[in-house]
């Protein structure tokens, strides 16, 4: 049985780490108001574009290949996620488990070969 109490320190750690980061973000904002460093101007608050006013909306179109990478990532990361439990239970599943996973890997290898050949992995 999993000893869930081992996860309690992680939860506490999460709170402490969150507290630290929140403090680091918001304390300087207060401090700068106290010291008088806080002097926003319209120029200062405009977005950076090498000294020019922004030419166009920054959230425009971007290359569809980023989507492609994301989709490929999902496929192969799920494959890895599938491999993790398999890797620690090979002593239980034995050759049957090994063969099954090899078939699965072969299928994904076919997918990779296809993606490679049709140019989904190219970045030019």
């Amino acid at each position: 049985m999993v000893d869930l109490s081992q996860y309690l320190p992680i939860l506490l750690f999460l709170f402490i780490a969150l507290g630290l980061s929140v403090a680091f973000v918001f304390l300087p904002m207060g401090v700068s108001r106290l010291t008088g460093a806080h002097q926003p101007t319209a120029e200062k608050l405009s977005e950076y574009e090498c000294g020019f006013p922004a030419f166009e909306d920054s959230r425009g179109q971007f290359d569809v290949r980023f989507y492609l990478v994301a989709i490929l990532f999902i496929v192969f990361d799920l494959e890895a996620a599938f491999l993790f439990p398999w890797a620690v239970s090979l002593d239980l599943t034995g050759w049957a488990g090994w063969t099954t996973m090899m078939i699965f890997l072969a299928e994904l290898a076919v997918g990779l070969a296809y993606a490679w050949k049709v140019g989904a992995l190219e970045w030019e």
Partner: peptide
């Protein structure tokens, strides 16, 4: 950096 102003762009 701690004493600097935190700039949040208006956009």
């Amino acid at each position: 950096v701690f004493l600097q102003e935190t700039i949040i762009p208006s956009a």
